[in-house]
Design a protein around this nucleic acid. Structure first.
Length: 423
RNA sequence: GGAGAGGUGGCCGAGCCCGGUUUAAGGCGCACGCCUGGAACGCGUGUAAACUCGAAAGGGUUUCGAGGGUUCAAAUCCCUCCCUCUCCGCCA
């Protein structure tokens, strides 16, 4: 959520920033109109309620002939108050819906653009590997080695599902374990094992609801949503709480499956394991002081980059332009690893600062000793998404004989296995 | 799923039967002050959040799990729901 005081105080700035992301700035005019009628009604009601409380209390002590007269008067006042309360509830509902519908404003350093083509490549690390044979795409490699079974995934569940087998399953597990170890030891994150289903309040806190409900899977009988990312339970872990400032920064990590309907990308990336309805991911979440958030974003990107670096796979850092930012994000850097088989730079991580946008929705605050509560800033980033990391590993480490070498850092997680051969 | 007991401020806990005398008692914790060479003890003062009026001091409203109802007036009475605990049932 945005700060209503900022919107009231500087509506032109807010409109300009919203326009930069491609959102409709006239939303702000409607919002402010609703806000002002809400406030004046609130004020009127406050006065009536104050009078009722005062005079009702006196009614208990007053003489009996005066009581009947006064009681009738109070009853009328009571009717006015309930009518006003109904009207106010309606206004507040509308106001809250509009507030929840507004996206976050971009950071000043987020470049302005109109589509993903305006994203900026910040830097590239490592050289894409050169091959003296034609590298295969992972869907061919995976099938030939017998470690990815697409047909049976479809049989079990439908399109966009697959099954990892043998060394394929082991490779993914090794990547997860290795990434978590890196996060929790050298990078200072606390590992969590959160629920994979959460309630609508939780999924509103991070900004998926109310606007993006149709991108998630949900239970039809209970109030359960399947998490689209571990960002949801991790960020909301402290929802509604006021944290002691000494706890900050809080760095959390978790490995979870992620569930996405991928309605918007129907027909895209249908080959291979790049885009599925269910995938695994190691996620990083930070809760930090507002003044630290830009510096912490750099550190988040660096934490994700280190994973690519140690896998010895070329990657680049891309800064998203204003139009390509997610709903809650104020600044985002994507990390893309090069996959020589399909010839693509694959988005393996997306690191964002959501400033106080999610903290306001979820009510996550901190307090300095003796001070007033303040909203934290929340950040999240993948560290990394497993299927795309698998693609990058398989395609970069493939050898002329059709086998795949195991990256050095993963060998101790795979029983010292050095080469993945056909099953 | 069934039965019972509960949900009150940062924490513990009284108030609920019997609506108004509670600005939510009391304690703990915390902060500040006094005391002290310094501390403990003791004493005193303060101690939530949101919204809002005000230059400030300060004031107003809301919040006793959530929502609805009764009433001039609800933490207190009624209804619905959620959650926690205990026991039972079922199940990995």
């Amino acid at each position: 959520m945005l700060d209503i005081k900022l919107i009231r105080g500087n509506p032109e700035l807010v409109k300009a920033e919203l326009a930069r992301t491609g959102s409709d700035p006239t939303d702000i005019d409607r919002l402010l109109q609703c806000d002002s009628s809400r406030r004046s009604l609130q004020h009127l009601l406050d006065e009536k309620r104050a009078r009722r409380a005062r005079e009702s209390k006196e009614l208990g002590k007053v003489s009996s002939e005066e009581r009947d007269h006064k009681r009738a008067e109070m009853r009328l006042l009571g009717d006015e108050i309930s009518a006003g309360e109904r009207e106010l509830a309606e206004l507040e509902k509308r106001f809250n819906q509009m507030m929840l519908g507004l996206r976050n404003l971009p950071r000043p350093y987020t470049p302005t653009g109109s589509s993903e083509h305006d994203n900026v490549i910040v830097r590239t690390e490592g050289e894409p590997r050169q091959f003296d044979f034609k590298p295969l795409p992972h869907w061919e490699l995976g099938e030939k080695l017998g470690i990815i079974d697409f047909d049976r995934g479809v049989k079990l569940s439908g399109t966009r599902f697959y099954v990892l087998r043998g060394a394929g399953a082991l490779l993914q597990r090794a990547l997860i374990d290795w990434m978590l170890d890196l996060k929790t030891t050298e990078q200072g994150y606390l590992e969590m094992a959160p629920p994979y289903m959460v309630n609508s309040q939780t999924v509103t806190g991070t900004g998926q609801l109310p606007k993006f409900g149709d991108t998630m899977y949900r239970d039809h009988e209970d109030d359960f949503w399947f998490i689209p990312t571990a960002e949801v339970p991790l960020t909301n872990f402290y929802a509604g709480e006021i944290l002691d400032a000494s706890l900050l920064p809080i760095n959390l990590t978790a490995h979870t499956p992620c569930f996405r309907r991928e309605k918007m990308s129907a027909g895209r990336d249908v080959r291979g394991i790049k885009r599925g309805h269910q995938f695994d991911k190691v996620e990083m979440v930070k809760l930090v002081r507002p003044e630290e958030s830009d510096r912490e974003l750099e550190s988040l990107v660096e934490n994700a980059a280190e994973v690519c670096r140690r896998l010895k796979i070329a990657f680049r850092v891309v800064q998203l332009c204003s139009a390509d930012l997610g709903n809650a994000s104020a600044a985002t850097y994507d990390l893309e690893m090069y996959a020589p088989g399909c010839g693509e730079w694959l988005e393996v991580s997306s690191c964002s600062t959501c400033t106080d946008y999610q903290a306001r929705r979820a009510g996550i605050r901190f307090r300095e000793k003796g001070g007033k509560p303040e909203f934290v800033h929340t950040l999240n980033g993948s560290g990394l998404a497993l299927p795309r990391t698998m693609i990058a590993v398989l395609e970069n480490y493939q050898q002329a004989d059709g086998t795949v070498a195991v990256p050095d850092v993963l060998r101790r997680y795979m029983g010292e296995l050095e080469v993945v051969r056909a099953l």
